[in-house]
């Protein structure tokens, strides 16, 4: 699947079918459902999806309704990687024993940032380590949005949430965001990538690649959340672009250990351009020291990433 010459995925090739039906209950301007819809366009009909509890589960499956046009199962919050592992193991043995027809089916696990990096991390680590042939997609909106914006380990430093509130003594989230990409990379799985629905063709290319690679793949989708981040619902795509343009959320992939920055940014915009429009960072606008720390961290990570990609 590696391509020497850089090709851009043509828009006309995007699947016209919808696998996630309209009429779901997502908030206006939800970046997560935008990513979800595109990801499933890239994956097509031959998938089985295991979903964690969370925003995407709640908006899509109020019995007796469903938004899913593909087979989908929800069991609990922290176990989606294990359920997906079971689907994969089941399909493998049943096809081997000729109890199900031989057919390529992509097994997909989906969870939010909490279901991935907090409560779901053990099951995810186990499934990656065992080498199940599946894609795990983390829809990262950087807090427990479904339950009312509580902080997770993927909430960025400084962000105000209902359990990391901005107050007189504490400026929102006090710790750095956990690096899930590095955690996935530490499992030596064949494919790892960040995606953003603000860069739809980059997203489709990577998801297609993940679907065609044998073994575990990890996709980390930044999912802009207007109510949780405190932006207007019309700003979702723009903010997703700013996350990339400022270097806060670089778009890259790690394919069999090789790093590649897929959306290059010639000169990073200052992080303030990303922080300033969001109400969750309003209280740190005047904290120049904190902003300088964030800026330094973003810059350093970006430089390191480019260096790794250059070595590949």
């Amino acid at each position: 699947m590696e391509t020497k010459k850089k090709k851009v995925f043509p828009v006309r090739k995007l699947d016209a079918e919808e696998y996630f039906a309209p009429g779901h209950r997502a908030c206006e301007g939800c970046g997560e459902v935008l990513a979800l819809r595109l990801i499933h366009k890239a994956l097509g009909p031959n998938v089985i999806v295991a979903s964690a509890t969370g925003c995407m589960e709640i908006i899509s499956s109020p019995f007796p309704y469903t938004s899913w046009e593909v087979p989908w199962i929800h069991v609990a919050f922290e176990n989606t990687a294990a359920v997906a592992g079971g689907i994969e193991a089941g399909l493998k043995v049943l096809q081997r024993k000729a109890k199900r027809e031989k057919k390529k089916i992509v097994v997909v696990a989906m969870a939010g940032d909490g279901g991935t990096a907090d409560i779901g991390l053990q099951a995810l680590s186990g499934a990656m380590e065992r080498g199940h042939d599946f894609i795990f997609i983390c829809y990262d909106n950087e807090a427990y949005m479904n339950t009312g914006v509580q902080r997770s380990s993927l909430t960025p430093l400084g962000a105000s949430t209902t359990t990391s509130p901005a107050g007189a003594c504490q400026h929102g989230q006090t710790v750095w965001k956990k690096n899930m990409m590095a955690i996935a990379a530490a499992h030596y799985i064949p494919y790892i990538a960040t995606v953003s629905p603000s860069y739809p063709m980059d997203l489709v290319e990577k998801v297609t690649k993940a679907a065609n690679i044998k073994g575990p793949a990890y996709i980390h989708a930044l999912s802009v959340c207007p109510p949780g981040w405190g932006i207007s619902s019309s700003e979702t795509v723009k903010l997703g672009r700013l996350a990339v343009e400022t270097g806060v959320f670089p778009l890259y992939e790690i394919e069999k250990g090789k790093y590649r920055v897929t959306v290059n940014v010639e000169k990073l915009k200052p992080v303030e351009a990303y922080l300033q429009p969001q109400a969750r960072f309003r209280h740190i606008q005047s904290d120049l020291d904190l902003i300088a720390r964030i800026s330094y961290r973003v810059q350093t990570y970006w430089e390191r990433l480019k260096a790794k990609a250059a070595r590949a």
């Binding site: 922290e78 176990n79 990687a81 294990a82 079971g86 689907i87 089941g90 109890k99 380590e129």
Partner: peptide, 28 residues
Amino acid sequence: MDAEFVPVESEHSALSLCIGSSAVGARS
């Protein structure tokens, strides 16, 4: 025995995994 033996990382995942395999039609 022609089966997938999955040495999971916890009992929570053991039963979760059986749910996935049973849901695709595998005796689990």
